[in-house]
Design a protein around this nucleic acid. Structure first.
Length: 193
DNA sequence: GTTCTAGAAC
DNA sequence: GTTCTAGAAC
């Protein structure tokens, strides 16, 4: 393949070429990223927070995504809920959401814990916005209930994924429909937290 | 997941 | 002319 001038290492290693997708697994080992941890779970601060409060809850067990879950993981996921309750108490002046992205980019299953202000310089694109404010964001309780009832999480089709990402911008706290992300970011600052 | 940036949109 | 979005990344 003359078109391909790939490194030899691409062929001799089994590691994924998208090294960035392992970023969370790396952060789990970094004391500066860790917010709290126990025998089964690590909570890290999101490296690019999309709100004033934004944590990620991850299992130490090598589970790549919610699509690898089965009924045996129910106790683990229930502990995610306990961690959320703890963290909400620690941030009583914020309204926190917890849930999973339907199509995650990063490896290692992770639950987002994020405040509803959505005020952050890292919140830049429509995709950022829609991944937390549409049904692309799978609420924790829905995922737990689904696991209890069916023993697995249904994958979102690429078409559905695409449709959620292209939904017009709408404020998560009122009816305002900004035309651009800069307008939305400016608008969010007007909400009293 | 982010960065970079071409060119669309204004 | 500047702002903003969206697709490639070897």
């Amino acid at each position: 393949m003359s078109k391909c001038s790939k490194n030899v290492s691409d062929y001799v290693t089994s590691k994924p070429k998208q090294l960035w997708s392992l970023g969370l697994v790396e952060s789990m080992k970094d004391p500066k990223s860790i917010y709290k941890e126990n025998e089964r779970i690590v909570v890290i601060r999101d490296k690019y927070p999309k709100a004033k409060i934004h944590y990620l809850v991850l299992p130490r067990e090598d589970i790549s995504s919610i699509y690898k879950l089965s009924k045996e993981h129910i106790p683990l996921i229930e502990e995610f809920g306990q961690i959320f309750k703890e963290i909400q108490k620690e941030h009583a002046d914020f309204f926190l959401h917890c849930g999973f992205h339907a199509v995650p980019s990063m490896q290692r299953m992770h639950m987002h814990i994020i405040s509803n202000d959505m005020i952050s310089t890292c919140l830049k694109t429509r995709i950022h916005w829609n991944s937390f404010t549409t049904k692309f964001f799978l609420p924790y309780k829905d995922v737990l209930n689904k696991l209890k009832e069916d023993g697995l999480i249904d994958k979102m089709s690429p078409e559905t994924h695409k449709s959620f990402m292209s939904i017009p911008l709408k404020c998560n706290q009122c009816d305002f429909e900004p035309k651009t992300m800069p307008q939305l970011r400016q608008h969010l600052l007007t909400h009293v937290q």
